[in-house]
Amino acid sequence: MIMPQSESLVFFTPEEITSITGAQFFDTGISAGFPSPTEDFSENRMSLDNELIKNKETTFYARVSGQSMIGAGLDDNDLLVIDRSVEPENNKIAVCFLDGEFTVKRLRVDSEGIWLKPENPNYPIIRISEDNNFIIWGIVTNVIKKV
């Protein structure tokens, strides 16, 4: 199901899990060094929803649009897993609704206020004031990338 969309993020809800979901999973570990023998592997099915989602009712997917978070490893077209039940804290990556638009930024919270910090020096840090229409919509828990 597709959720509302803004210029920077498109939201999706996780689909209902059926009894035959998931891709094949080889429970051997994949060597990033020397090749390992494949004779002792077991083949199961794995659902990424089961691996990446703790709270199905409060979790959404959104696709990144833009370059403001490339320093945090969030690239254009990456798929974010966002949990609305996770408490916002300093230094978490958050999806925020700011003055009519969704944005994803790193939270900076201290005694002087709240800032939304991009992870790209070409973008400005945003200081949140009482004049802003601002909501922390959810916290990014995982990122799915295409290679």
Rank of each mutant, 00 (worst) to 15 (best):
N91V: 07
S42K: 10
V81T: 05
V104D: 01
P37N: 11
T58P: 01
L79Q: 06
N120R: 05
K145W: 01
V143I: 15
T103E: 06
K146D: 07
Y123C: 07
T38K: 08
S129P: 05
S19I: 13
G71I: 04
D99P: 05
K117E: 15
D83A: 13
P4A: 11
V95E: 02
E89W: 05
L9P: 01
T103N: 05
K117C: 14
E130C: 03
M3S: 07
E16Y: 04
G22K: 06
D76V: 04
F60V: 12
G100L: 13
D131Q: 10
I135F: 04
M69N: 02
F26R: 12
F12Q: 09
E16H: 10
L9Q: 00
N55V: 08
T59Y: 05
R127H: 10
I136V: 15
S36N: 09
N50S: 13
E57A: 14
T103G: 03
I114E: 00
Q67A: 08
A62E: 01
I2M: 12
E16R: 10
P4S: 11
S85R: 14
V104R: 00
P121N: 10
G73I: 10
L116A: 06
T18M: 08
W137R: 01
R106G: 03
L80Y: 03
F134L: 10
I125A: 05
V140D: 01
T103D: 02
P35Q: 12
D110M: 08
A94N: 05
R127E: 14
M1S: 13
E89K: 15
T141E: 06
I20C: 06
E112W: 05
F134N: 08
K146L: 09
N132R: 07
I30W: 07
I2C: 03
I128A: 09
F34G: 06
F134M: 07
A32Y: 12
M1F: 08
D78N: 14
I135V: 14
E119T: 04
F12L: 14
N132T: 08
G100W: 10
N122G: 10
V104E: 00
S42W: 00
F41K: 08
G100N: 13
R45K: 15
I93S: 02
I135D: 09
I135W: 03
V140F: 04
D49C: 09
F26Q: 07
A23T: 13
R108N: 09
V64E: 00
A72S: 15
S68M: 02
A32Q: 14
E15D: 13
K54Y: 00
Q5E: 14
I82M: 07
D99W: 08
G29I: 08
C96E: 02
F97V: 07
V147E: 08
P88G: 08
A94S: 11
K56F: 13
G33W: 13
I70W: 00
R63D: 01
D131W: 04
G33K: 11
V147I: 11
F11Y: 07
T18V: 09
Y123S: 07
S85P: 01
G29H: 05
M46L: 15
S111F: 09
E89P: 00
S47K: 09
D75V: 03
N55I: 05
I126L: 15
S65N: 15
F97L: 15
N77Q: 14
P4C: 06
N142P: 02
F97A: 09
F26W: 02
N77F: 07
P118I: 00
R106C: 08
P37Q: 11
D99R: 10
T28A: 11
S111R: 13
S68T: 06
V143C: 13
